[in-house]
Amino acid sequence: MDEIREMEALRAAARGLRHDPDEAMLERVRTGVRARIAVPASPWDVLAGWLRPAAISLGAIVVLVVAALALAPAATSEDDIAAMTGAMIVEKEARLVVP
């Protein structure tokens, strides 16, 4: 029992030696741990990061090209019809002129 009392007395006296970390210190520990255990990006994540903007750009280009192709033949046909119509009129007029 004396030993227990002695240890209790020592503990009570030694209590003043205990260090109590402040909140700022604890926050630095927590922040450091969070940063160090953060899951690193996988190769696929890195690749996706690069590919995503490229895919968006490519998609926009494809849309523009498709739209251009869709509009361009229509315009060409109208021009051809107009040209053909014009040529036919000229030819008909030429026939009328030639005896």
Binding site: R18, R30, R36
Partner: peptide, 28 residues
């Protein structure tokens, strides 16, 4: 657990900076 771990490391090393590093390394 950060308070107890840091306090323990501080008591054993007697060094505030070292205890912070040890606490961080402990959790990692």
């Amino acid at each position: 657990w950060s308070r107890r771990v840091t306090s323990l490391a501080w008591t054993l090393t007697g060094n505030r900076d070292a205890s912070e590093e040890i606490a961080q390394e402990t959790f990692v």
